[in-house]
């Protein structure tokens, strides 16, 4: 048979198929369970993005967040004597977003579907955006920046934890970016995050998904389990600037007080670390 198929590009006659060697699947390391009263380690860096006024990068476990801040920059339209703060949180498109299934249930009320006119944000993204925005509104000296806007862009590059734990890290990342942008603020916001198990009156600080293969999108709100994020201005007499609670149960006043106290402890601990990083970066 000398007739070649002229309609196709043929490979060389002596070509042989590729054979892959046997690749053994690596056994995924079991993540060592963190003690319940310990805060997980984080890696922080600032000023990586050159194009913006301030940026920060944070890694906690497999959760990676990057925040860039643009501002103060001019606005269009009528005169305003204070800066406008706006926040946009986005997950990378292929990431599965935590608690997605829950938010889809609640979204039927559609109160937040078009939050602040920003389009194409998922419910989770909108919720995180509005939480960060309300925290930082009370923290920045907006009156120092007339006729301008300050924009916070949060990019979540990777996530392996539950929603409120993620929010906790996002708060810290935004605070660092705010410092890097040299925007005058009343304090540096840090926050604490914990899980309260009502059945045995147990508190887990900085709760992580211990099971690596657990689907974060389907974390069900169990009865008697409560997740809490509280954000503070710690050197300003521990003023609370943000409070977010997810759960399906009632809380007694004294328990709530205790939980906030524990969040404050955690927030102070993180504040110490961030302060150390910032002061080191000066020298």
């Amino acid at each position: 048979m000398n007739v070649q198929d002229r309609r196709r590009l043929l490979g060389p006659a002596n070509a042989s198929p590729i054979v892959f060697s046997d690749v053994k699947e690596k056994k995924s390391k079991k993540i060592q369970a963190k003690p319940d009263d310990e805060i997980s380690k984080m890696f922080i860096n600032t000023g990586l993005v050159k194009n913006c006024d301030g940026s920060a990068y944070i890694e906690v476990g497999n959760t990676i967040i990057q925040v860039s801040i643009y501002g103060p920059r001019p606005i269009r339209g009528s005169f305003i004597d204070k800066a406008i703060l706006s926040t946009e949180c986005r997950f990378l498109p292929y990431l599965s977003q935590p608690n997605d299934s829950i938010s889809r249930l609640t979204s039927s009320t559609s109160l937040i579907t078009n939050y602040n006119g920003k389009l194409n944000l998922s419910n989770i993204e909108q919720k995180i955006s509005s939480y960060i925005e309300s925290c930082f509104l009370s923290c920045i000296y907006l009156e120092n920046y007339p006729k301008s806007s300050i924009d916070i862009f949060i990019k979540i590059l990777s996530v392996d934890t539950n929603l409120l734990n993620l929010v906790n890290d996002v708060v810290h990342c935004c605070s660092l970016a705010m410092v890097d942008a040299q925007i005058e603020s009343k304090d540096l916001i840090t926050s604490g995050n914990l899980r309260y198990l009502k059945s045995n009156n147990h508190i887990i600080m900085d709760p992580k998904c211990k099971d690596k293969d657990k689907d974060i999108t389907n974390e069900v709100v169990e009865e008697g389990k409560l997740d809490l994020v509280v954000s503070f201005m710690n050197s300003r007499n521990d003023e609370i600037v943000g409070f977010w609670c997810e759960g399906n149960d009632t809380l007694e006043d004294d328990v709530l007080e205790k939980l906030i106290e524990r969040c404050n402890d955690m927030s102070k601990e993180i504040r110490k670390n961030i302060n150390f990083y910032l002061i080191e970066s000066l020298e």
Partner: peptide
């Protein structure tokens, strides 16, 4: 390098012309 447009201006511009 163009920075992402301000979120605020994108809202404001809906009422103004595209030219602006």
């Amino acid at each position: 390098d163009s920075a992402p447009p301000s979120l605020y201006s994108s809202i404001a511009s809906t009422s103004t012309t595209i030219l602006q």
